[in-house]
Write a protein that binds this DNA or RNA. Structure first.
Lengths: 144, 144
DNA sequence: CCTTGACATAAAGTTAGGTTTAGGTATTAA
DNA sequence: TTAATACCTAAACCTAACTTTATGTCAAGG
């Protein structure tokens, strides 16, 4: 049995966050003695689940939904799988988008590196795209 | 010369967003005739810059800083490069984190796929980590 | 003359996931 | 006895990038 302060230390999560999770209903079985929260193994397990699902990029409302399904047992495996499947597709798209972003940034870095060396941007502006270094041209093409 | 409605259509950006950008000072040279905003080529160029920098994942306050530097000329190439360099490193880290997230999600998908096939999670719980399929074991190890 | 539509403003609302504040209780140590 | 801790609550605040709302101006068309 742990107090909120102990759980906070064990998981390195602010007390305010634990209270917030409680208020949001993430510890359906949390007990109290004379008003003070007492976290038992079940509550600690619930917290581990929250942490893990947050790690996988789920929003809290999805975590909540997942917990509901999990307490309903084996009839909800499909729902749970679909939840992760959807999130997986979203993450794959996020990664793709960030890789495009990275191309832009690498181009920008090259651009200003050259501007610094030349002392001016003029020579870059006058450069035809097909005269760019091959690697840079690839970057350039990837977002134009 | 364009009205706000025309610009909104040309760029597919809500009118409210354009007004917001204006209020935030992103169109330092925007003219008005009898109270109505008139966007000229310069303002359109400014908007293109905003769009491009937002594409590269910069926050509006960084976009603002960049514009300030850009109007100061060649003496700020270094500042501008550093801005992109920093953002580049941040994006690389975001991608790494998402790839870890993806590993968790792929594991979860495998897990529930198997639970659906078995009709129960029990057999997975009893499975030793070194008895997992090699690909799944790799995923599992990557976040444990 | 009246309505429609495009423009304008200021201020409040939205979202998520908390954090901070103000005020109160209960136990314990000096 | 009083001071320090650790706990409690409700409600306000935070960030970013907008969006919505309420209200108003102005010109053209029927």
């Amino acid at each position: 049995m742990y107090t909120i302060g102990q759980v906070s230390q064990m998981f390195n999560i602010p007390i305010s966050t634990l209270r917030y999770y409680d208020k949001e209903g993430f510890f359906p079985n949390l007990k109290r003695s004379s008003g003070i929260r007492r976290f038992d193994e079940q509550d600690i397990e619930a917290l581990k689940v929250i942490e893990c699902l947050k790690e996988s990029g789920l929003e809290l409302k999805d975590v909540k939904q997942f917990i509901k399904w999990a307490t309903k047992g084996s009839s909800t495996y499909k729902n749970r799988k679909e939840l992760f499947e959807k999130r997986k597709i979203a993450v794959e798209q996020e990664i793709k988008k960030l890789q495009k972003t990275l191309n832009i940034l690498e181009y920008k870095c090259w651009y200003y590196d050259k501007a610094i060396k030349d002392g001016t941007e003029d020579r870059i502006y006058k450069m035809l795209p097909n005269k760019l270094p091959p690697k840079i041209q690839k970057l350039y093409d990837s977002f134009h």
